[in-house]
Computed example of a mutant assay.
Amino acid sequence: MFTAVQRIVEKYQALGIMKAGEILLEPSVALSLMQELQQENNRIYGVDFWYYRDGQLVEDFNSLDLSDVKDPQAAARITQVFLSEYLPKNIVLVSLVFDDD
Results as ranks from 00 to 15, higher is better:
90 N>C: 12
45 Y>I: 11
19 K>R: 15
63 S>G: 04
54 D>S: 15
45 Y>M: 12
97 V>T: 09
24 L>G: 11
68 D>K: 14
92 V>Y: 08
84 S>D: 09
30 A>M: 04
65 D>Y: 04
16 G>P: 02
29 V>R: 13
67 S>Q: 11
18 M>F: 07
100 D>M: 13
72 P>W: 10
51 Y>G: 03
29 V>C: 11
96 L>Q: 08
59 E>Y: 02
34 M>S: 13
37 L>I: 01
7 R>T: 10
25 L>E: 01
101 D>K: 15
70 K>P: 01
2 F>K: 15
98 F>D: 00
100 D>F: 01
83 L>K: 04
1 M>W: 10
1 M>A: 14
83 L>P: 03
101 D>Y: 15
19 K>H: 15
77 R>P: 00
39 Q>C: 05
84 S>Q: 11
13 Q>L: 12
70 K>Y: 06
73 Q>F: 10
56 Q>T: 15
37 L>Y: 02
99 D>K: 12
30 A>E: 00
23 I>Q: 06
28 S>F: 08
11 K>C: 09
97 V>E: 02
76 A>N: 04
67 S>E: 14
1 M>Y: 11
21 G>V: 09
36 E>A: 04
70 K>I: 03
14 A>V: 09
50 W>R: 00
78 I>N: 10
83 L>D: 04
42 N>G: 06
23 I>S: 02
95 S>Y: 03
74 A>C: 07
3 T>I: 09
33 L>I: 08
44 I>Q: 00
64 L>F: 07
60 D>V: 07
99 D>W: 08
33 L>Y: 02
91 I>L: 08
63 S>R: 06
87 L>N: 07
94 V>L: 06
41 N>P: 03
24 L>V: 07
8 I>L: 07
98 F>Q: 04
58 V>W: 05
40 E>S: 10
45 Y>V: 04
83 L>Y: 07
100 D>T: 14
86 Y>C: 12
49 F>E: 00
61 F>L: 13
78 I>Q: 10
76 A>T: 02
7 R>V: 09
44 I>D: 00
48 D>V: 09
7 R>L: 15
